[in-house]
Design a protein around this nucleic acid. Structure first.
Lengths: 153, 153
DNA sequence: TCTGAAAGTGCCAGAAT
DNA sequence: ATTCTGGCACTTTCAGA
């Protein structure tokens, strides 16, 4: 359970560049951070091994992939529910993009992607019928915006 | 504003593979989907051009990068607020990972990442003082879980 | 299929400890 | 002296036409 290993300015820059475009070449990164490509590769290998970089993913347009609807479903559980049981409500439901367990009024929040209203309804019903779930509240997402992604300190 | 272009099974597989690991080579993908590497490249180029693949990013461990706290901040706005004004509350606040505009009780939800409680407090205060914001409600995230990422239909 | 570019590896130099 | 990090040279693999 280590926490923050020694990350210098160059490591930060490399991470930022890879967050902006994960398919950048080492040579490209090397030029931007002013060290050689092999040196970049070694740093990236290290960052991965230390678990700072967990992986790389393609960002897709869900609308064009046939999942235009997005919603938060707040979940409330009965008092006996263990935290691990909470996480298990999402398993097998592919429409659940992320399940957040939370401290406070909703015990969890599921971020859903759905094809259409019927699909969304089906997913909500599935969640509502899950063991220990005592209630839900759904919040439709109209739009999202995020910063250019990478300048985060 | 086109929507769903012709995506065949191979395109879907390619997208899934790139979502699992965006740094996969065309040769690697080619082997897995049983076509040639140049054919994969052409498809990926097309998927990018059609806007199905928007970009590629590195997934980082925010805890180890010094941002261990995560929270939802529900935002309520006064009646005269335009939707575009809602999105603008997040600009300049690097701790806002995503701002969701929503239909219903909260008008928007900001997903926040913070260094520590003071940082979180600072961000919440910033949001509360934003123009048109009439109230907030904060929900701490205890944990997240997401499906292996890619099997989504 | 072919050419140039990038990835990946080994080796050595220099700096920091 | 040793450890860490970078550069260089080289081979293998990939990208792109």
């Amino acid at each position: 359970m280590s926490d923050q290993p020694d990350i210098d300015r160059t490591d930060e820059e490399i991470i930022t560049l890879l967050r902006q475009d994960a398919r950048r070449t080492f040579a490209d990164i090397a030029e931007r951070v002013s060290i050689s490509a092999p040196a970049v590769k070694r740093r990236v290998d290290r960052l991965q091994q230390e678990g700072l970089i967990v992986g790389y993913t393609a960002i897709v347009d869900h609308r064009r992939l046939g999942l235009p609807l997005q919603a938060f479903v707040e979940l409330r559980f009965d008092g006996r529910t263990k935290v691990d049981d909470i996480a298990s409500v999402a398993i097998g439901i592919t429409e659940v993009e992320t399940l957040y367990t939370t401290a406070g009024d909703p015990d969890a929040v599921a971020l859903i992607r759905a094809r259409d209203v019927d699909d969304l309804k089906r997913v909500i019903d599935l969640l509502r019928r899950s063991r220990h779930v005592t209630g839900t509240k759904t919040l439709m997402v109209l739009g999202t915006s995020e910063p250019p992604h990478g300048l985060r300190r």
